[in-house]
């Protein structure tokens, strides 16, 4: 349920409940993206370094 759904109510229960759900999903998503992004950057970085060394 999102705040745009008609079943949504702006009460404390909904805010806490879904707040935590979306917070957890965000943490998981950000964590995964961070690890993924760092990996990609490391890979690219290493590649460039090697390229530079060759030149």
């Amino acid at each position: 349920m999102t705040p745009f759904s008609f079943e949504w109510q702006w009460d404390i229960g909904h805010i806490i409940f879904f707040g935590f759900l979306y917070l957890v999903l965000t943490i998981v998503g950000l964590g995964l993206s961070w690890a993924g992004l760092k990996t990609v950057l490391q890979l690219l970085g290493l590649m460039w370094e090697r390229d530079l060394e060759e030149h």
């Binding site: 957890v24 943490i27 998981v28 964590g31 995964l32 961070w34 690890a35 993924g36 760092k38 990996t39 490391q42 890979l43």
Partner: peptide, 25 residues
């Protein structure tokens, strides 16, 4: 496989965040 290894290491390095979230859940 290099990407897999790096990804695994990177994931491992922030395990405390996941562990904390997991504990809460």
């Amino acid at each position: 496989i290099k990407p897999a290894r790096l990804f695994g290491k990177n994931l491992h390095s922030i395990m405390a965040i996941f562990a904390a979230t997991g504990t809460f859940l």
